[in-house]
Design a protein around this nucleic acid. Structure first.
Length: 360
DNA sequence: CAGGCGTGGGA
DNA sequence: TTCCCAAGCCT
């Protein structure tokens, strides 16, 4: 059964369907591998950002078997810059699980999908609906916003998800669950936006209780977030005579897990003392401090790195690896580390004459 | 279960 | 500048 509400949304979706590389054309069956890959990439990440990454991944690894057979380092490297690197580690683990334990075929139920690494409640429901036509209830941030507005749900997030799920129970049309899922997310992304929602264009305008009360923007109700603390540290960029940079791999768990880095002192609240800076340096060398610091925002804190550079011989350090300047694009460097290295190399070449406005 | 976990863009 | 956010998952 399709309710009037769902019908109106699907009609809107049919008129405004957005073309995206991971989306099946109207009437065509979606490829579970592409749906899965896109859903993982889209977690907390914008469509615009994901686009080029998705294209590169499917071109290089056209199916789950190919991805499972790839060295993990290649996957991490291809993911570099996209953020939330646990996704990349889980992506590879998931591909191997599907290839090794499921005969190369994705589970076609919500419960089965939920067992896979990196696949949580949202992603399992989304794949089940979009790739397999299961009538699952798909709730992401967009859907939360849409539904808390339509039904005027005042419960603060994340608790509101319970109420949203209940409100949606009779809403999912069994004949087009995948389209319905994508339609509710598209509605949230394009019409029912966090600020200044375009209610006059919304297929649910007449039904929306928040809009009727003139307070759509008040939903969803959420608690205020604390301000992000600032941490500081020294980052050490060692180069050899040929310009190769000394890198090492971060531990597999935690921040930027499994990715490459330049060494740094402990990331802490205060300004690192000269003593700490020397003690944390990977070798006793003629270090030079760059005048411009590197700032980088993480989800829960802001980081300010002071960059120290030095020229070294390979015998000065052990462990890690030396990567030639023209090979840096070929390793799994997160954006933060690319910024630091770029700053150091620009400085070494004397090309960092970045003009900045004078400050009082 | 609250907090850890990236990044880039828009207001 | 600063804040918020964007198709969440894991522990």
């Amino acid at each position: 059964m399709t309710t009037a509400l769902a019908g109106a949304l699907l009609a809107w979706y049919d008129r405004h369907r957005r073309v995206m590389p991971w989306r099946a054309r109207s009437g065509e069956r979606a490829d579970p591998y592409r749906v899965w890959l896109a859903e993982i990439m889209l977690q907390q990440t914008t469509v615009a950002t994901v686009g080029p990454y998705f294209e590169r991944f499917v071109k290089r690894w056209p199916n789950v078997a190919a991805l499972a057979a790839a060295p993990r380092e290649d996957v991490l490297h291809a993911w570099a810059g996209l953020g939330y690197y646990a996704r990349a580690r889980n992506l590879h683990a998931c591909a191997k699980a599907v290839a090794d334990s499921h005969g190369g075929v994705f589970p076609d139920t919500e419960e089965g999908l939920l067992e896979l690494p990196g696949v949580g409640p949202y992603t399992a429901a989304a794949i089940a609906a979009i790739a397999f036509g299961r009538p699952s209830i798909v709730i992401d941030g967009n859907v939360e916003r849409v539904m808390t507005r339509v039904f005027a749900i005042d419960t603060p997030l994340p608790k509101a998800k319970i109420d949203v799920r209940a409100a949606m129970a009779d809403l999912v049309p069994v004949d087009r669950p995948g389209d319905f899922a994508q339609a509710t997310m598209d509605l949230g992304a394009t019409i029912c936006s966090p600020r200044r929602p375009k209610c006059m264009l919304c297929p649910w305008e007449m039904a929306c209780r928040a809009h009727a009360a003139g307070e759509a923007e008040r939903y969803p109700v959420k608690l205020k977030r604390a301000k992000r603390p600032l941490k500081r540290a020294i980052a050490y960029v060692l180069t050899d005579r040929q310009g190769a940079v000394w890198l090492r791999r971060r531990a597999d768990d935690g921040l930027l897990g499994g990715m490459m880095e330049v060494p740094s002192s402990e990331w802490a609240a205060g300004e690192p003392s000269a003593k700490i800076a020397r003690a944390a340096a990977p070798a006793a060398l003629a270090w030079r401090e760059l005048p411009e610091k590197v700032r980088h925002g993480f989800t829960h804190f802001e980081l300010e790195l002071t960059v120290w550079t030095a020229q070294a011989r390979r015998a000065d350090v052990s462990g890690g690896q030396w990567v030639a300047a023209d090979g840096l694009d070929a390793v799994a460097l997160p954006t933060l580390m690319r910024k630091v290295i770029a700053r150091a190399i620009a400085r070494a070449k004397g090309t960092s004459k970045k003009r900045r406005p004078k400050r009082a």
